[in-house]
Design a protein around this nucleic acid. Structure first.
Lengths: 129, 129
DNA sequence: TCTGAAATTGTTTGTGG
DNA sequence: CCACAAACAATTTCAGA
């Protein structure tokens, strides 16, 4: 959608719409723009959530950084509860998940608990304003 | 990024770049385009994951549709494991989460188990190609 | 599937309120 | 924070390969 269109929808001129968006970007309210790619379209048929817990409770807690190099991890959340982190991963199949789990355990020094996603009725819906 | 820029990066003409993107869109490989909005910027300070399980195992399984009306639910995953669905929600604070949980239980006829997100080191990283 | 060119449309920047 | 206008840049469409 163009600034011209945004202007029409909001009853503003093109340049006013552009200025508003620029302000939202500068404040950090808009973090970026992205194309939503269908994972199946690039061979990633399997999505899973993985909870991780360190084996040794008093280790340095730099798991997010250590795990960042693993491309299959699309999201990393630090959580309160039984686990320390919750990861969302995308892989080709269960064999690839098995390999990935071993890698996560090795890199992170953690135990894992996986939840396979069967389907995604909806995801990343825009917040209601 | 413009088609002209994509063309430069891929060594294609503007119209060839545009045609390729159009094809990806038509095949469904690109599902759409979105601005990433910082939830805190609109007063949503608390993110949580909620696992839900029906009280009565042999109920009609239309939870995603029944829960769709709840705007605080940003994502809904059908999962294999202890729970039936995993929801990602965004609310203002713990009080709002409490209200939301009651609503989810009522609408869904389900029990809930919540995991609060403390921070998000990264989210929705692009898949490595 | 790609290139190249022409017509249309959108963006950017400055001036001014 | 907005409108308007002029200069600039991107998009769209089409012919040809």
């Amino acid at each position: 959608m163009s600034y011209t269109d945004i202007g029409k929808e909001t009853g503003l001129s093109t340049s006013a719409a552009q200025q508003r968006v620029r302000r939202l970007e500068q404040r950090g309210a808009i973090k970026g723009y992205h194309a939503r790619v269908a994972p199946e379209a690039i061979g990633l048929e399997l999505t899973a959530f993985i909870s991780i817990k360190p084996f040794e409770p008093n280790q340095p807690d730099d798991h997010p950084e250590r795990l960042r190099e693993i491309d299959e991890i699309v999201s990393c959340y630090s959580v309160a509860g039984d686990a320390n982190y919750l990861l969302k991963v995308q892989v080709a199949n269960t064999a690839a998940l098995e390999v990935l789990l071993a890698r996560i355990r090795a890199v992170g020094g953690v135990s894992t608990q996986s939840t396979i996603v069967l389907s995604t009725p909806y995801e990343d819906r825009p917040p209601a304003i």
